[in-house]
Write a protein that binds this DNA or RNA. Sequence first.
DNA 1: TTACCCCTTGATGTGCACTTTAAGGCAAGG
DNA 2: CCTTGCCTTAAAGTGCACATCAAGGGGTAA
Lengths: 149, 149
Amino acid sequence: MNIKEASEKTGVSSAAIRYYEKESLIPAIDRTPVGNRDIDDRIIRRIRFVTQMRAAGMSIENLRRYIQLFDAQEDNAKEQKALLQEQLGVMEEKRDDLQAAIDHLNYKLNHFYDHMESTEEELRALEREHTDKVAKQDDAPDDDIAHNF
Amino acid sequence: MNIKEASEKTGVSSAAIRYYEKESLIPAIDRTPVGNRDIDDRIIRRIRFVTQMRAAGMSIENLRRYIQLFDAQEDNAKEQKALLQEQLGVMEEKRDDLQAAIDHLNYKLNHFYDHMESTEEELRALEREHTDKVAKQDDAPDDDIAHNF
DNA sequence: TTACCCCTTGATGTGCACTTTAAGGCAAGG
DNA sequence: CCTTGCCTTAAAGTGCACATCAAGGGGTAA
């Protein structure tokens, strides 16, 4: 498949795919006789992996370090694991920050002017609350943060 | 307190505090007779709020929209709620993406070359797994993503 | 043959969120 | 009086992650 099709399939722009290749986030892509990129499913999967990690906030630089470690099939298991653990820590912290902010906004939403004007909205708010994985009490999220904001 | 103290207290650089003020992410700050910023706890709390939302991935532009809606004490409850809900949706999606990536990395970590070289590391990996709020099965996180990566 | 539509590379541009620099003011200490 | 150390503003610079442009090539179809 050509780069345009790959772009449509992954939702990643052609320019970004070329950029990822140049930055070694995906392997060198095979070429047709005239030099055009010929993208297979292995590349598609690697593009999707990059997309997922980027969405999770991993920088290009960290992603490249990580991928290079994996591509070099040497005996660097220890480094790979260390990098993995490090990135995991960063991401878990990020997730928790995000959850704290979500809790904050949910709290505000549920106390909006101390009155909700329609029952539908109350129900939607409740639904939202139960969507969250943790059974949340109706506590203020964090004392450090002003609740008039 | 002067801007340097506020910077040290919040971990936000003096330049960034000035920037936030200029961009109306925090209210106009009182000045001393000579024109220096005199920062009180209300401002500190607002800086912290900005920090929290920024860490959660909210853009300056969205944050300004949100804050302006709240600062204008008009009857715009509906808009405020809509914006809040919108942002909440964005953040929940982001959190879920992050969780998916975390699951992916955890899976990799737990299957590292199908052998862990020390018992301590096995235990640490298990600990990690139970830290997560959802009781996770040892399933591959997502079929779309290549597990050799 | 001309017109499209795809591709290539390298260079340059863009938007965000600040950071840094330049040029200067005020107050205290030696 | 001069240095130190804080502050001010406006303007310019920075790093990231691409997006866009320029200049050209190849394949097909009317």
